[in-house]
Every structure is written in structure tokens, then in C-alpha cells.
Write a protein that binds this DNA or RNA. Structure first.
Lengths: 186, 186
DNA sequence: ACAGTAACATACATGCATGTATGTAGGAGC
DNA sequence: GCTCCTACATACATGCATGTATGTTACTGT
């Protein structure tokens, strides 16, 4: 059920998501859905939590292994690109736009998840600048925002076109950081 | 009316856009809206056309002045970033996600506009590679897609945070192209 | 002065998605 | 064997946004 909800959310967004379709995609009826989740909002929150967990496990943790800030950021970019080949990873991107600037529980939760990611990137940018591996530039937070945005934008536009998505995501990330992307490719 | 519709579309998307709010934002009622436009779809198409025209005038034309492909692409990135400080420019981004993979007139029109942009970038990438100013890499079309996506993503995430948006957009574009962003900043 | 029409506002009908209330089958525990 | 509860399906009520039909006002041409 969560999986088809994630697929639906990433395709149609929250407002356009029809619960009957979600249920029938999962082989159930709307009754079953309302038995498992309080309402549409509850379902969306569950999907977001699931997506965030998946992200942390498959992208966040591996990237945290890297000791070098630049390597960690590039690993995040590559991991994110790979993860975004699956529907679950695109949920956050699809919903963030829909709820930006709104006061909705789903929007707040999304904002929270996104904020921790941006904070993490900001810290890495600052760390990289201290060691000199990242050149100076705009405020670290602005760089982090642009990094996440560019990454997600590129990956969405490529729509999981393996294997180029990974390389191009890494390049976009490197570019935002002010690094020569050709020296990243490894 | 077009302006408030553009604002509404960029904020809420097509499905969540409430025509009464659009009309009242513009100082009218829904009656006036239905007098000027056939229906919601007609309104959206008009907004898209308006946005596209604005883009061509304020971003496309200036960028076309540049003879060097790389300079043209970077000019596009900067121009796009500046334009996206206004609501009108974000309409396409907001709607593209909503209609991707759907068969809706609005989606088709959006696809058309987007496709000409991607084609244009593809040609520039190819031209740049022929002259050697852009290094080889993934297929030109994939690069173009990633370029546009990264650009839009970064600019949206920055939400018009002048003046960094312009620089970071240029950096993201340079990165995707495989160019050292520090040599672009000029 | 009057007809016609453009530019709106108002009122009504329709459809569709959500949410809730009610029904049903099957397994667990005693 | 009976009861109870879980996991669903079905049926119904509500609300809201769209689209359409029907005024109303004001201006314009003759």
C-alpha cells in the first residue's frame, strides 16, 4: 500500500492523488486504506517517513562513511541519483513544491526532513571550506540549498536515465560547490 | 488576471488552483474569468504562452547574442535565475512535474515548450564540444536535460535569494557541462 | 432615444473525491 | 461451538470546485 501511495504521490502530487486508485493499485479498496490509515494526510505522512528512512539508509549512511567533506557531498549526490530511479525517492521532491509556503502538516513534515538535509550539507560545506577543499563563495546555507535543489532537479529531469544520471548529478553538485567537476569523476 | 493566475499556478499547481481565488486576487469574480477564458485549461495555456514569451524576450534573446556556445549557456543560466525571481517564470517548473507522464493538453504544451529549450541546449552542447570548449561526456541530450533540470531546481530552492541565485545557477550549469565553475564566474 | 453588445456579477447544476458508517468473513481464544 | 476482534468491502453523506445559464450595468453606434 505504501509503495503504490509513493508511486501515486510522486506522479500526481498530493492534491491530485486519488485514494481509490492507490488502493486498487495495491489490490485493495478504499475501505482497506481507511482501515490502515486515519486519512489521506496520515497516509502521506507515513509515505514521507518511509521515504526518509529509505534515504537515510541507502544514501545518508554510506555518505557519512566518507571522512572528506567533498567526498561525502559527492557520495550523497551519486547516491541520491541512484535512489531517485525508484518512485519512493521522488516523493519529497514532488510534494515540496506543492506545499512550499503553505501551512499544512504534510508541508511542515516535509520542511523538517528537508531542513535536516540542508543543515547537514551546510555543515559539510563549512567543513570543506575550513580545510580548503571547497573554495569560498556565497553563504554556506545558500550553497547547500542550491546543491540540493540542483541535484533533485537534474535527477528528476533525467528521470532515472541510468547510468548518466549518477555522473551528471555528481557534476551538478561539484559545480555548485565551485569545484572542477572533471576532478571529481574518480 | 494573467499575473495572479501565474502566481497561483506557481504556488499551488494546476489541480490545486482555485479559480475564485485567482479572480478575487485580480479584483474580479469568477464570472469575469470565464468571460475572458473558455475554462481553466484555456487560462493555464494562456499563462504558459505568456511565460514562454517572457522567457524568450528576457532570457532567450540575450543569450542568443553570445557567439560562444559556453557563454550562451551560462548566459541562459544567469538569465533564468534572474527571471525566476518573478512568479511567472516558475510556472513551467511547477506544472511540468504535475503533468509529467500524463496526457493532458496543458502537459503537452508544457512538453513542447520544454522540448524546444532542451533541443536548443543540446545544439549548444554539441557546438561547444566540436570547438573543444565543452569536454566530452554523456550524450548531449542527457546533458541538456540535466542542465535545465539542475538550473531550475537550484533556482527554485533558492527562491529568488538575490544575488547568490545567479552565481549558483551559473555554477550548477557549468558543473553539469563538465566545466570548472571558477573559470566561468567572470 | 434606442438597440445591441461588451464586461462583468450572480445563481444554479453537476461531478467527484473524501470521510464515515455499516456490513461481512475468517481466524484466535476459551 | 461460541464469542470477539481484525481485516477488509460496501454504501452513504458531505463539501467543494468547476462550468453554465441567467441577470445587470454601461457604453457605443446610428
Amino acid at each position: 500500500m505504501l509503495e503504490s501511495a509513493a508511486r501515486g504521490l510522486s506522479r500526481y502530487g498530493y492534491g491530485n492523488l486519488v485514494l481509490e486508485q492507490v488502493a486498487s493499485d495495491a489490490g485493495y479498496t478504499r475501505g482497506a486504506l481507511y482501515h490502515q490509515f486515519k486519512d489521506k494526510q496520515d497516509l502521506a505522512l507515513a509515505v514521507i517517513e518511509w521515504a526518509d528512512e529509505t534515504w537515510r539508509k541507502e544514501v545518508g549512511r554510506p555518505a557519512a562513511q566518507e571522512t572528506d567533506p567533498v567526498a561525502a557531498l559527492i557520495a550523497m549526490a551519486r547516491g541520491h541519483a541512484v535512489l531517485c530511479r525508484r518512485d519512493v525517492a521522488r516523493v519529497a521532491v514532488a510534494l515540496r513544491l506543492e506545499f512550499s509556503g503553505q501551512d499544512h502538516p504534510v508541508g511542515r513534515e516535509l520542511e523538517r526532513v528537508s531542513e535536516t538535509l540542508v543543515k547537514r550539507c551546510t555543515r559539510l560545506v563549512n567543513a570543506g571550506r575550513r580545510t580548503g577543499s571547497i573554495p569560498p563563495g556565497p553563504p554556506a546555507r545558500a550553497v547547500a540549498l542550491a546543491l540540493v535543489g540542483a541535484l533533485e532537479g537534474a535527477v528528476i529531469a533525467l528521470a532515472g536515465q541510468a547510468p548518466h544520471d549518477e555522473l551528471l548529478a555528481a557534476r551538478a553538485a561539484a559545480g555548485v560547490l565551485g569545484l572542477d567537476p572533471m576532478k571529481i569523476s574518480e
